[in-house]
Write a protein that binds this DNA or RNA. Sequence first.
DNA 1: GTGGTCTAGACCACA
DNA 2: GTGGTCTAGACCACG
Lengths: 127, 127, 127, 127
Amino acid sequence: MIIKIDSRSAQPIYEQLRDQIVYGIANARLVPGEPLPSVRRLAADLGINFHTVSKAYALLCDDGYIAIDRRKGAIVLQAEGGQNFVPKLTAQLEFCAAQAVCHQMTLDEFLHHCRACYAAQKGEKAL
Amino acid sequence: MIIKIDSRSAQPIYEQLRDQIVYGIANARLVPGEPLPSVRRLAADLGINFHTVSKAYALLCDDGYIAIDRRKGAIVLQAEGGQNFVPKLTAQLEFCAAQAVCHQMTLDEFLHHCRACYAAQKGEKAL
Amino acid sequence: MIIKIDSRSAQPIYEQLRDQIVYGIANARLVPGEPLPSVRRLAADLGINFHTVSKAYALLCDDGYIAIDRRKGAIVLQAEGGQNFVPKLTAQLEFCAAQAVCHQMTLDEFLHHCRACYAAQKGEKAL
Amino acid sequence: MIIKIDSRSAQPIYEQLRDQIVYGIANARLVPGEPLPSVRRLAADLGINFHTVSKAYALLCDDGYIAIDRRKGAIVLQAEGGQNFVPKLTAQLEFCAAQAVCHQMTLDEFLHHCRACYAAQKGEKAL
DNA sequence: GTGGTCTAGACCACA
DNA sequence: GTGGTCTAGACCACG
């Protein structure tokens, strides 16, 4: 799986990394049980500091996307609907919805975008 | 309209402010044409520095939510579907969708959440 | 002659006023000898403070575009190539040129724009 | 590259800074890929506050002249003909042209000045 | 060491 | 009285 980092982005590199790994899991380029590269290996590949990779892995670990094993390194998990997943997602969606409402987007238009985004991630055709 | 700032949050104060004003516009507690408090006034009310408020207003201005009027101060605008609004929104929704997919959420479940969030912002009942 | 003021612009109102009067003289909607409205009259028409109009007139007077007579009010002059007109114009053109060069604009392209802008002001067809 | 700030000018320092950097890029004293001094370094060199430099850099970043790179600091970009570059330039040129017309300058004279300014920036001989 | 955030306070331009 | 500019200094996030 290819990861692209934009060091000019306003978004911190560790967040970019986390996001891309989440995207990778979503569209099955990364599957549960699969090992992730070691912190130092990935850092070297991307030309970034290994602390940065470490921070990204820690975030993913906190949210249940991966497990970090001292011996086996990081492996992808089957994410469970963890304790605070739905509230977190809802907060993000509410802000999206608020922006949509401000821009006069109707419910149907909004749902259309939501559906398209879901399909894009799932890698399937929108129904 | 009541604005709450959490100075202990990791999210910058000026972003919290911007978000809350966007929420306020979405659910019509702030209506187009309405003037916002002056930067110094709002800063005093919130117990923060006026530069911080000014930065929030600048962000809102850039995104077309408000206008800084030389004579009337900041006023709420009817946000137009500005040049890069849809791409921005899509990026946010895609990350939401990716997280949902990772957590085995089906399209219907995801859309259910989206619908609920839209209704919550619009201040109407979900259909 | 119709003057439009945008109080939401970042540009001060008195500069907008001055600019529009210069445009008016350039394309002959205002001709030498013609009287301008009184400061208070124009301020009332535009719904702005008369100090603002006064400042705009002062700028125009400094640059030789108008004369302010205590009795007759402001009248349009035939602008002479005053002492510091060319240097002022050159400074502005140099900054334009610098931006053009930065954006890879060739000399021909730049001159094409210059010619078009001149023609637009003169109200004639570009040669 | 030498930068001179006139703290007594009516023009804000951050704009003076921005302008001089644009001039520097135009005449190749600053080349794409080249790193700019850090905000604090340049501020110290110029004897001004680093916030002021930061604002200048932010403006340049918005207009595509430089990029703020998380790892390398600010670096000069090859400015692309961004979305609103031509309209911005045209507005400036139109005001120049209007002033020229007011002062009886002919099209040929005007273009002569434009050509000279372009050549001065490009650092080449006028044709 | 870099830029970003926040605070505090002074001064000015604008209207 | 409004926002904009500039300064000064502290603290933090990032890499």
